[in-house]
Design a protein around this nucleic acid. Structure first.
Lengths: 155, 155
DNA sequence: TTAGATGCAAACGGTTTGCAAACCA
DNA sequence: TGGTTTGCAAACCGTTTGCATCTAA
């Protein structure tokens, strides 16, 4: 379930942040595509909005877990609109633990959380004797060619 | 098996890169500690070496898989000296697939490659129906408190 | 009405580049 | 000796900040 502009506006209001015209435009801009983007991308799309406003707005959205950073194949960072998982039953306001699959062709990001991987990482602390200490957190990025790009690409 | 300055020098020579005095100093500097570092850190430690030289040398070392980038807990990138796995039997010149465990206290990086995790990620493409396409690569960062810091820290 | 948000321009920090001098193989 | 590498300084690029103006609540 992708983020709709409305759900983002609601999330902003819940955090007592004002919903201004520039913010609405930025929200519409980034929720139109499932691909990763940078602050500079948004500035390019919305040249009439001040750079500072774009950067400040993206920071707010990141703090609100509406967008998050993903590591791209070349080690650069980019933003991605988070999946709309916030209102799932039982999740309260804690953003659920998740990982990213990034398409190496179109940069579309999909979210997943595989129990098997979580279990394997927990088991790590035991298996690699003396190497791993107390595991606190982890980050996983999977790079793939997404189903749509697999279907499109001739080879 | 951590990287020794000598093994790094050898790796440079193999790539037909000259081993100059500044490069030696940089190599000694970064192989002295197991912690992550930035270009700026090296510039701070070796102020008599030009910034450009530091940046250029680190880029060469990265291209040679002697150092690599790791994602820190706050999403920033930092360098880490790679484990000296290049000359393992059968590995030829292909740098072996590995992942990072980063200590959230002292930033010490350790390397691991758990088969269980690799298998779990391969299984992903089947388990999350229609979400994952052709998996090309992946990146895992585990954040922990390393054994040494666990032993040191009072709580 | 007013705390909060905007836009501009300037400052900032990290990184890259051009080029003459210095150096390693 | 000749092709690399260095160091400096300037350029560059993405990001942040100060401040006067504007605006959503």
């Amino acid at each position: 379930m992708p983020r709709t502009p409305d759900s983002i506006v609601t999330a902003l209001l819940e955090r007592n942040a004002r919903v201004t015209a520039p913010r609405r435009e930025i929200i519409d801009c980034i929720s139109q595509v499932p691909r990763t983007f940078t602050a500079e991308d948004v500035c390019g799309e919305l040249p009439h909005i001040g750079r500072a406003t774009v950067y400040r707005t993206l920071k707010i959205l990141q703090d609100a877990d509406i967008i998050c950073k993903v590591v791209m194949p070349g080690d650069e960072m980019a933003y991605s609109v988070s999946a709309d998982l916030d209102h799932e039953p039982g999740a309260a306001n804690i953003p659920p633990h998740h990982h990213h699959a990034v398409c190496t062709v179109c940069t579309a990001v999909r979210y997943f959380n595989a129990e098997a991987i979580e279990r394997a990482i927990k088991a790590l602390s035991l298996s690699v004797e003396g190497v791993m200490g107390e595991i606190i957190d982890h980050r996983i990025e999977v790079y793939d060619v997404c189903p749509r790009c697999v279907a499109t690409d001739p080879e």
